[in-house]
Each structure stands twice: as structure tokens, then as C-alpha cells.
């Protein structure tokens, strides 16, 4: 378990993300995390996905994977891959400060 400091907040991280500090996450941290993932700017469309991920995680304890995102977030598969290149579910979860989705699909 490593700790990283982002915007003066200490985030305890497991291999993926700050699992222990999910409540510490905020929009500024999301913007920092997105830069680390190579996404320079978070648009409204990015935020729809990130907010959806947070709300599903709060409800179910697991971040949604790609099919749920496609069907329910209001952003389709093509756009998801355009917004978060190289693995939308994994990347969006990371930026949302959540562990990687457990589902296979």
C-alpha cells in the first residue's frame, strides 16, 4: 500500500487507486488523476461518466463496467472509448477515485 500526495491530500492507494479514501475524492483530485491518465481536460461528457460511476459505486459497492456504462450512463460505447481511450471503465473508475470494476464485461 503506497500513499500519494495530491493537492495536499494524502491518498492511500492500492495497486489501482485510493480505495481507502473514497470519501476524500473531489473534483480537483479527479482533474489531477485525469492528467496522470493522459486526459488533459475533463469535459461535461467525461463528468457524466464519472458521476454515474460514483453513484453506482455508492449504491452497489462496485464500479459499473462497460456494458452498464453503455446502457445506463447516457454515453454510448463509441463515445466512451473516445473520452477515455485505452479502457474506459478502468480509466473512468481511476479518475472517479474508485477501484477497478470487478465485472468481466
Amino acid at each position: 500500500m503506497a500513499t500519494i500526495e495530491l493537492l495536499t491530500k494524502q491518498l492511500e492507494r492500492d495497486e489501482d487507486v485510493n480505495r481507502k479514501n473514497i470519501a476524500d475524492w473531489d473534483k480537483e483530485i479527479a482533474m489531477e488523476l485525469s492528467k496522470q491518465e493522459g486526459i488533459e481536460e475533463l469535459t461535461d461528457r467525461h463528468w457524466i461518466v464519472i458521476d454515474f460511476m460514483r453513484s453506482v459505486y455508492e449504491e452497489k459497492g462496485d464500479a459499473p463496467s462497460i456494458r452498464k456504462l453503455t446502457k445506463e450512463s447516457g454515453v454510448d460505447t463509441k463515445e466512451l472509448y473516445a473520452l477515455f481511450p485505452k479502457g474506459p471503465a478502468k480509466k473512468a473508475a481511476k479518475i472517479a477515485g474508485l477501484p477497478k470494476p470487478k465485472g468481466c464485461i
Binding site: 462497460i66 472509448y81 479502457g87 471503465a89 478502468k90 468481466c104 464485461i105
Partner: peptide
């Protein structure tokens, strides 16, 4: 299909 989709999900 699962492997193809899984691959894309991993970039």
C-alpha cells in the same frame, strides 16, 4: 466475444 471485449476494456 468475452475475450475480445475484455481486451478492448484493457486497452
Amino acid at each position: 466475444l468475452i475475450m475480445a471485449n475484455g481486451a478492448r476494456m484493457e486497452g
